[in-house]
Computed example of a mutant assay.
Amino acid sequence: MATEALIERLLDAEQGPSPSAIDALHDLLDDATIETSAMPKSVAEAARLVGLSTPTLRYYEQEGLVRPGRNASGYREYSALDLRRLVFLTRMRLSGMTMTDLKRYILLVEQGPSTIPERRRIMLDQQARIARQIRELGLALEITEYKIRVYEGHPEG
Rank of each mutant, 00 (worst) to 15 (best):
P19N: 06
I7Q: 10
Y59C: 07
I143R: 14
V50G: 06
L86R: 05
Q133I: 04
L102H: 01
T98V: 04
A128M: 06
S18K: 07
L83N: 08
S73G: 10
L83R: 11
A32Q: 09
P68C: 06
D125A: 07
L94D: 14
P155K: 09
E4W: 00
I22V: 15
Y59H: 15
I130E: 09
G112R: 07
V50H: 05
T36L: 08
S18M: 12
R70Y: 00
S53W: 00
A24T: 10
A13E: 12
P55T: 06
E14M: 11
E77K: 10
L108M: 11
R91T: 03
T115F: 03
L28K: 10
G138I: 05
L137F: 07
T100H: 06
L65G: 05
S20V: 04
D12C: 03
D12Y: 01
L6W: 04
G64P: 10
A5R: 14
R85L: 09
L141A: 12
T100E: 08
R58D: 06
E152W: 00
A5W: 00
L65T: 04
R129M: 11
S18T: 08
I22G: 05
M39T: 12
Y78R: 11
S73W: 00
F88I: 15
R85P: 04
E61F: 01
D31S: 15
A46D: 03
H26Q: 12
R121S: 01
L139N: 12
K147T: 13
T3S: 09
A140Q: 15
A24Q: 11
S20R: 07
G16D: 10
I134E: 10
A72H: 05
R58I: 07
L52Q: 12
G74Y: 03
L28G: 05
M92P: 02
S18R: 13
A131K: 07
P117F: 02
L86Q: 04
R149E: 14
R119C: 01
L65S: 05
M99P: 03
I22Q: 10
